[in-house]
């Protein structure tokens, strides 16, 4: 007998007491844990646990480009390989990269390019490999955040870190950091990334319906959330060195 499981979403995404299904308030983030230097053979690497998302990122470079015809004579290139493990989602994902993965690889690469000094490394490439081990909504935001962390860990000169988060609307209410179920069944979803050296938006995608007032309000909500995540990124990057310093002082 084949097992058929249909996607079923609850009719209401907000509970009677005003909280969300997982008990968060409207502007609360899921628990986030970040770590750097987790892969020994990579030049730089990072790991993030954002709610149920578990993502590894590793950085290699600068190195020679293969295939060679992709190399540009006047600047380096940034290549991002976003891949999802077959077991990362509910129904088995076919391992070949599909349309969605190519799109996300491209948007992450274009989102991170402005912070790098690619013009200093002509004819070379930086490569970021993002492996999603477990996915539950908002993997492109988490991937962008962790890729920036891995780049910084590799010691590659950057203008600033990049932080990303999503806002959206469920049941007529604006919420921050959508989980998988809110992403699928909600009214709208807007992932966004920011580069901190000029406070400019580097990634903005939108899906669903929202009026202009809600849009302005959601961008304000986003700013608060991004600031919180940025401090977590800085902590993750420095804590490894600070721990050694403190251990010796004692």
């Amino acid at each position: 007998m084949t097992l058929l499981i249909q996607d079923e979403y609850p009719k209401k995404l907000l509970r009677d007491d005003g909280l969300r299904l997982d008990g968060r308030g409207l502007t609360d983030l899921r628990p986030i844990k970040m770590e750097v230097n987790v892969i020994k053979n990579a030049d730089g690497s990072a790991y993030i646990e954002w709610g149920n998302n578990k993502i590894f990122a590793s950085v290699y470079g600068p190195r020679e480009v293969h295939p060679h015809h992709l190399a540009k004579p006047d600047k380096g290139i940034l290549r991002v390989f976003y891949r999802m493990a077959t077991y990362s989602v509910f129904e088995r994902k076919r391992p070949a990269p599909g349309r969605r993965e190519k799109e996300i690889s491209m948007i992450i690469s274009e989102c991170l390019e402005p912070v790098l000094f690619l013009e200093l490394y002509p004819g070379t490439s930086f490569e970021i490999f993002i492996e999603v081990i477990d996915a539950d909504g908002g993997t492109r935001c988490a991937s962008t955040t962790v890729a920036a962390l891995a780049l910084a860990d590799a010691g590659i000169p950057m203008r600033s870190l990049v932080t990303s988060c999503a806002v959206g609307k469920v049941d007529g209410q604006l919420i921050t950091d959508l989980s998988g179920i809110e992403d699928k069944a909600g009214d709208s979803d807007m992932p966004c990334a920011i580069t901190w050296f000029n406070n400019e938006i580097s990634l903005l995608q939108f899906d669903g319906k929202m009026n202009q007032e809600e849009m302005t309000k959601s961008l304000d909500m986003l700013k608060d959330a991004l600031e919180k995540i940025y401090h977590m990124q800085l902590d993750a990057l420095k804590s490894k060195y600070i721990q050694i310093q403190e251990g010796i002082q004692q």
């Binding site: 910084a152 950057m158 203008r159 870190l161 800085l234 420095k238 060195y241 310093q245």
Partner: peptide, 9 residues
């Protein structure tokens, strides 16, 4: 004192 700084700080 050695202060550790991250990119963009």
């Amino acid at each position: 004192l050695r202060e550790i700084v991250a990119p963009g700080e």
